[in-house]
Design a binder for these strands. Structure first.
Length: 424
RNA sequence: GGAGAGGUGGCAGAGUGGCCGAUUGCGGCGGUCUUGAAAACCGCUGUGCCGCAAGGCACCGGGGGUUCGAAUCCCUCCCUCUCCGCCA
């Protein structure tokens, strides 16, 4: 949620941000809704105040006395009017809330302004992309791939985008997750395993609702949503809580399956492991003091990068432009690994600072030294998404015999130095 | 899933229709006393919204209702606990 003070005092800044993000949102309509709400609220509170006073007078009178009965008449009139005005206020507030939730977060000043992904800036690169392995090929064309990631049977049992991992595939998913989690633990993150379904309030706090419900699967009977990322349940862990300032920064890592409907995706984007409806990911979430959130964003990005480096995958870091920022994000880095077989970059991590946007919606605040209460800043980043890492590892590490070497750091968990079946 | 009991401020726990946003205890903060500490005593100690401010309004699990008036009565949903059933 936007800071109301900024909206009221500097609507031009909000208008500019909405334009830069290409958001579908009428700032002036929101301002109007805000004025309407405040006017209605004052009316109602004035009436309530008068009724309260009348009630106090009445309570001091002997019950059933003529004066008492006279007061009842006055109270009746006040209450009737109040009831009407309160109903009006409810309508106005519903509209206000909807309006206010439609305003996206403001981009940070360091974010390049551009309407579409072509405006994303390459922040850094690591390793050699494109010039390497002569045996590389797209992972979905590798003969043994279907032996370790069974899309066909996944499609039969559930649907497209829900594969079975088996044998080396299943083991590799587990090995990667263990590697990611143990690295996060070494960096001071507390491990959590959260619920995989969340309620409406949680999905609203992190920004999936009200607009993006199409991204999530829903239960038929209990209005619960499957999580598109661990960000949702984990960020909501401290919803409606006031944290001691001394506890910040709080750092949590969580491995979860993630579920995304991905309606409208097609083509090479969704081939093989590139984009699926269910995938595994380790997510890092931080709650930090507002004065430190941009340093924390950099360290978050560093931590995600370190994982990719240890896996030996060439990658680049993009600083996302305004037009490619999500609704809730103030600043975001994407980390993309080079998949030598497909000859393309695959996004494996996204590290974002939400500033106070989610915290305001979630009611996660901290008490500062002077006893004041203000929203924390929240951040999160993937570290990392499993399937695309797996795809890149296989493609980049293919050998002449058709098998793929396994990075050193994964071997303790994977138990072998190669995966796959040699050519015959 | 069935039966019962509950959900009140950081915690404990009063309050069953009208100065109750709420008695009290504990905890926390400040002070007095003390060489220091403890004890004792005194004071303060929720959040949100509206307002330039003074101040006002709301919140006793959520929502709705009855009533001139609801923490208190009714309905409904959610959650917790106990017992039974079922299970990993």
């Amino acid at each position: 949620m936007i800071d109301l003070k900024i909206l009221r005092d500097h609507p031009e800044r909000v208008r500019e941000a909405v334009g830069q993000k290409g958001a579908d949102c009428d700032v002036d309509a929101v301002l109007e809704a805000d004025r309407t709400r405040r006017a209605a609220l004052r009316e109602v509170e004035d009436l309530r105040s008068r009724r309260k006073a009348a009630n106090a007078e009445m309570a001091a009178l002997p019950k059933g006395s003529p004066e008492f009965r006279g007061k009842v008449g006055e109270m009746k009139r006040l209450s009737a009017e109040l009831k009407e005005k309160e109903a009006g206020l409810r309508t106005v507030e519903t509209a206000w809330e909807e309006a206010i939730l439609s305003i996206p977060n403001l981009p940070h000043e360091s974010v390049p302004v551009a309407p579409d992904p072509s405006g994303n800036r390459v922040h850094s690169t690591w390793g050699e992309a494109g010039t390497d392995n002569p045996y590389a090929r797209p992972h979905y064309d590798i003969p043994w791939l279907e032996d370790v990631v069974d899309f066909r049977r996944g499609g039969k049992v559930t649907g497209a985008g829900f594969p079975f991992y088996r044998g080396d595939g299943a083991r590799m998913v587990r090995a990667l997750v263990q590697f990611f989690l143990s690295e996060a633990a070494a960096r001071g993150y507390e491990e959590m395993y959260p619920p995989l379904l969340v309620n409406e309030a949680s999905a609203t706090a992190t920004g999936q609702l009200p607009d993006k419900e199409g991204q999530m699967y829903q239960t038929v009977e209990d209005s619960l949503y499957t999580i598109p990322t661990a960000e949702v349940p984990v960020t909501n862990f401290y919803r409606d809580e006031i944290l001691p300032e001394a506890s910040l920064p709080l750092k949590v890592c969580a491995y979860t399956p993630c579920f995304r409907r991905e309606a409208g995706s097609y083509g090479k984007e969704v081939r093989g492991l590139n984009r699926m409806h269910q995938f595994d990911k380790v997510e890092l979430v931080k709650w930090v003091h507002p004065s430190r959130s941009y340093e924390e964003l950099e360290s978050l990005r560093d931590e995600a990068e370190a994982l990719v480096r240890q896996l030996g995958l060439p990658y680049r870091v993009l600083l996302m432009c305004t037009g490619d920022l999500g609704f809730t994000q103030a600043k975001k880095y994407d980390i993309e690994v080079w998949a030598a077989g497909q000859q393309r970059w695959l996004e494996v991590s996204s590290c974002s600072n939400f500033e106070a946007f989610q915290a305001r919606r979630a009611g996660t605040r901290f008490r500062d030294r002077d006893g004041g209460v203000e929203p924390v800043h929240t951040l999160n980043g993937s570290a990392l998404a499993v399937p695309r890492i797996l795809a890149a590892l296989i493609e980049n590490n293919l050998q002449a015999d058709g098998t793929a070497t396994v990075p050193e750091v994964i071997r303790p968990w994977f138990g072998k130095a190669v995966m796959g079946t040699p050519n015959r």
